[in-house]
Amino acid sequence: MVDILIGQYLTGSSALHRTDARVKIILLILYAALLFIIKNPLSYAIFLIFTTALTMMGGIGFKAVMKSIKPLRWIIIFTAVINLFFTKGEPLLSFWKIAITAEGIDLAVKMTVRLLCLIVASSLLTLTTPPLTLTNAIESLLSPLAKLKVPVRELAMMMSITLRFIPVLAEEADRIIKAQTARGADFGSGGIISRAKSLVPVMMPLFISAFKRAEDLATAMDARCFISGAPRTKLHEEKLTPADARAGVVFVVFAAAVAAAELL
């Protein structure tokens, strides 16, 4: 199994699932903005509690959360280490040329919390929103750009299809790698050139398959009356619901708590 969560929406019916994707995107942007202006440790605590609560409310398991953090773990660690060792201030501990300062610890912890919150919150969006709904929402939010002749609709369609095919192709890559391994291919050793060369038996079939799939899909879309650029209608209501209003209220309360913590 290839661990790719993109496009692997987890079915559910939590309040988080029911909230309109446009509302979720806007709130996520506000959340991120807020996250980068806060200073008070209490605010960070509120962020952590709020994010954990949301995760639990969305019915997202600990494993799924860890899975979304894992690919970015080196960035988190790197950021923490940089902040820990290279922040100027009063040294608490020092050896050789490296000093750990109180400011460094403070900053390292804060940066780690920031990154974690941001990653988890963004994954909450993709885990509780079907990719097509997500792209529809982006399309809807970007629709003013259509007046400037930006092909918003086509871009959104491209994005949603890409998202849908990532898990399919990932699984296929896994299968091809196994098949070539069974023929004695060795992917793990040698210099850069020989490693790159060893990828040809995987990439070639993968490209061919991707092209074949793209062609099949185009035909299947044609057969169902899809015409690029033609006006379409939508199944899903674009009207906001009480669930969205509740989400808004919850976020305002959260933001107020953060503001209060900052002003304390």
Partner: peptide, 21 residues
């Protein structure tokens, strides 16, 4: 395992999808 793989040949389902050269 490499030696094992030369002794035990495994042909995957739709093996033609792995042709590359």
């Amino acid at each position: 395992l490499r030696r094992v793989r030369f002794d035990v040949g495994l042909v995957f389902q739709y093996p033609e999808q792995q042709l590359f050269a």
